[in-house]
């Protein structure tokens, strides 16, 4: 299973991306959005809109996950958008494809390398955020819940990275791939609420009513069709207070589908790609 060629590709990409100028620009944003948000949401006097007051570590981390959705995924897109297209544009891809290392191994190395490059800083900050919340709330970590939140964070970053890389295999210029990555991020981060509202309205649900059970059910279902939604479903498995009518097994199945299908698509693109 362990392949030294794949491992060295991963190591090289991670090292290259972690020391890149982009990462230096993105780190302050990530720090502000992940531990920063966690610190704020863990404030004992905080009162969120709707009179919500997060009380447990996982509840605070659930709200902190917005930092991952807004900053982590965007940074993932910005790291991976030129993962293939830059090499293709410069002619380096042709040199790489003419090496004996199988394309399948190259694609594993590229995907995992880019994923780890964003996962390492985000996981580190997520851990810091969790410890900060525990400190402020005076609670201890529940290992199983924490592990599942880490897995959810890893998965959402993987989905965005892999979609950006797929876009990168199609594009012949940098503009197209970044437009695709940012466009996808924009759709699922901002426009999905609009899509949900339209579907709910078309189904005869009063979209203005926040606690309408029908609206919550439709939202819960439509969220399975969005990576951000699945991410929140996964985090919600740790929160007994929230029930949107989607069983945890369905959330994990959706996560598996969101992981496997793009992965297969990326692999197939890499097998057929022309320099």
């Amino acid at each position: 299973m362990f392949n030294p060629q794949v491992f060295s590709t991963i190591k090289r990409i991670v090292r290259q991306k972690l020391t890149s100028t982009r990462m230096f620009i993105m780190m302050p944003i990530l720090i502000l959005f992940i531990p920063g948000m966690a610190w704020g949401f863990a404030d004992p006097d905080i009162m969120l809109p709707g009179g919500v007051k997060p009380e447990s570590v996982m509840e605070v981390m659930f709200y902190t996950s917005l930092g991952v959705v807004f900053a982590g995924t965007m940074c993932g897109v910005l790291l991976a958008f030129d993962g293939i297209s830059k090499d293709r544009f410069s002619g380096v891809l042709e040199v790489k494809l003419s090496q004996p290392m199988p394309r399948k191994h190259q694609s594993i190395g590229i995907a995992v390398g880019h994923w780890f490059a964003i996962l390492i800083p985000v996981w580190s900050l997520w851990l810091i955020a969790t410890l900060l919340v525990c400190y402020r709330l005076g609670e201890t970590i529940i290992i199983t819940e924490t592990i599942s939140s880490f897995i959810a964070v890893a998965l959402i970053l993987f989905w965005y990275v892999i979609f950006s890389l797929i876009a990168s295999t199609f594009s012949t210029d940098q503009g197209t791939s970044i437009a695709f990555g940012v466009g996808m991020w924009f759709l699922f981060t901002f426009l999905w609420a609009l899509v949900t509202s339209i579907v709910a309205f078309a189904s005869g649900v009063n979209v203005g009513e926040l606690n309408n059970p029908e609206m919550i059910r439709i939202e819960g279902f439509l969220d399975l069709l969005s990576p951000n939604g699945v991410f929140h479903h996964l985090l919600e498995t740790n929160l007994t207070a929230i029930d949107r009518g989607v069983p945890p097994i369905v959330s994990w199945l959706a996560a598996a589908v969101w992981s496997v299908l793009p992965w297969l698509w990326f692999n197939s693109r890499m097998t057929k790609i022309q320099p």
């Binding site: 544009f89 410069s90 002619g91 003419s98 320099p275």
Partner: peptide, 11 residues
């Protein structure tokens, strides 16, 4: 294989 005009770049 030596392709035509590879624009090697990076640090």
């Amino acid at each position: 294989h030596m392709p035509e005009q590879v624009r090697w770049s990076g640090r």
